[in-house]
């Protein structure tokens, strides 16, 4: 009987060790300061900040380029029409 009881207790202890080893460390209030997190859990702010400002620059440059392209297209069409009108008058 005693032998069985000891085997059961020992088995329980052997199971409990890995389970307890996997428990995350508890924090007193449930929160931890961000600077105490391991580097893998922290996000650096630089890429987000630079990304936002670079995206704005690229967006503005692209938009200005599209306006410039459309203006050029309309102006060339106008010139072509005027040239055709002048040619028509010349006949």
């Amino acid at each position: 009987m005693l032998r069985r009881l000891l085997t059961a207790v020992l088995s329980l202890l052997l199971i409990a060790v890995p389970v307890l080893a996997q428990q995350p460390p508890t924090s007193p209030d449930g929160f931890v300061p961000v600077d105490t997190l391991p580097p893998s859990e922290q996000l650096a702010a630089g890429p987000f900040l630079v990304g936002a400002y670079v995206f704005f620059l690229l967006l503005m440059m692209f938009y200005l380029w599209t306006i410039w392209q459309r203006l050029g297209k309309v102006e060339s069409e106008m010139r072509e029409l005027e040239r055709r009108a002048l040619k028509g008058q010349g006949r």
């Binding site: 200005l64 306006i67 203006l71 309309v74 106008m78 029409l81 005027e82 055709r84 009108a85």
Partner: peptide, 19 residues
């Protein structure tokens, strides 16, 4: 800038109609 584009487009439409 966009207004200039739209004004030119309106002028172009008038030119097409006149043609």
């Amino acid at each position: 800038l966009r207004m200039r584009l739209e004004t030119l487009r309106a002028g172009l439409d008038r030119l097409y109609l006149a043609a």
